[in-house]
Amino acid sequence: MSAQLFLDGVHRSFDGFKAINNLTLSVDKGDLRAVIGPNGAGKTTMMDIITGKTRPDGGEVLWNMSTDLTRLDEAAVANLGIGRKFQKPTVFETHSVEDNIRLALKAPRGVFATLFHRSDKAEEARVTALLDQIRLTHLRTEDAANLSHGQKQWLEIGMLLAQEPDLLLVDEPAAGMTDAETMETAELLKSIAGQRTVIVVEHDMDFVRALDCRVTVLHQGSVLAEGSLDHVSARDDVIEVYLGR
């Protein structure tokens, strides 16, 4: 087993409600993985546990089979090379678009490193390249607050790329995008996979289909089914979870 991310028997409950219940999940390096499931299936809580925001009540989350992520805080997890994009686009509203990217660029994160940081040509080139990639070059000096919802989604994806993470956790990236943008996003994520590992949490089945990858179905905090989209969507229990009740 050489899983890059391995969740082993993870538990977490909130006031008796089991948000994550004996969840075991393994993602290999370079994989593109879609995680789907109805509301309350535990998708966001799973992200919170991986990124160190929420501590599980039990179980392990292993990174490269060696580091237990459950003992680390958000910053430490991020510095291991795990980047996260939120469901609701979160950018630094009072900073310009380019400053948002600059802050995200892979670089030392210490107070004194940033205090005495000097921008150089290589850095500027990298910012320009990323802005081109997310098509926000024309808005370079605009405050992020003035972007549209879709533009903020792109900016956040750009910030995620700027971090150069080994694992990208992407929470509902297509929300608020046009159909064309949704497809572009899918293409982008597919192109990233291979060099980096990508886990996408998504509701939009068209988007998941466009990703064309292995799908994990979560239900009541544990894995209900795993396989290709066609495979899982043919299963009765999955259909029942989505359509039943």
């Binding site: 990124t51 925001k53 805080d73 958000e74 910053a75 991020a78 510095n79 980047g83 996260r84 939120f86 979160t90 950018v91 630094f92 509203e93 009072t94 900073h95 400053d99 600059r102 802050l103 995200a104 994160r109 107070v111 004194f112 940033t114 205090l115 005495f116 940081h117 910030m159 971090q163």
Partner: peptide, 22 residues
Amino acid sequence: SKAGKVLVAVRDAESRTRFMGY
């Protein structure tokens, strides 16, 4: 300075800053 930008980032979206590794 870049540190100052981080401070404003903390003010505006603290958890985003954390997930960036600061």
